[in-house]
């Protein structure tokens, strides 16, 4: 069952950047890559809970602003040799509007 929530227009998220969706369970970062792909991750680095949405987005990765851990935007997996995973959420774009699905 998927429950799609409208987040906003893709242009509202900076290219190679992110915006935050606030939820009762904590923030979710909505990331936009240089290629205009959209990904959603729990906005907490598995290392020390840094806000990933504030990091530098490069390729399909984001670098945590606190201690430079790299996280794969697609899976939320931390890039080796560090270890860990940030929860990822399904997203889709329809007619330039970004939708997020929460469990």
């Amino acid at each position: 069952m998927s429950n799609w929530i409208e987040v906003g227009k893709i242009e509202e998220i900076p290219k190679q950047g992110a915006r935050v969706v606030e939820t009762a369970e904590g923030d979710i970062g909505i990331f936009r890559t240089g290629e205009d792909e959209i990904f959603a991750l729990r906005d907490r680095c598995p290392h020390k809970s840094g806000p990933l949405s504030q990091g530098i987005v490069h390729g399909k990765r984001v670098t945590c602003p606190l201690h430079n851990w790299n996280i794969e935007l697609e899976s939320g997996e931390v890039v080796a040799p560090d270890e860990g995973c940030a929860a990822s959420f399904p997203v889709k774009i329809e007619a330039g509007v970004v939708f997020l699905s929460l469990p």
């Binding site: 409208e6 998220i13 915006r19 935050v20 969706v21 606030e22 009762a24 929460l102």
Partner: peptide, 11 residues
């Protein structure tokens, strides 16, 4: 200024 606020607030 907009970039400083959440794009959406839920709940």
């Amino acid at each position: 200024r907009k970039d400083y606020i959440p794009i959406k607030k839920l709940g």
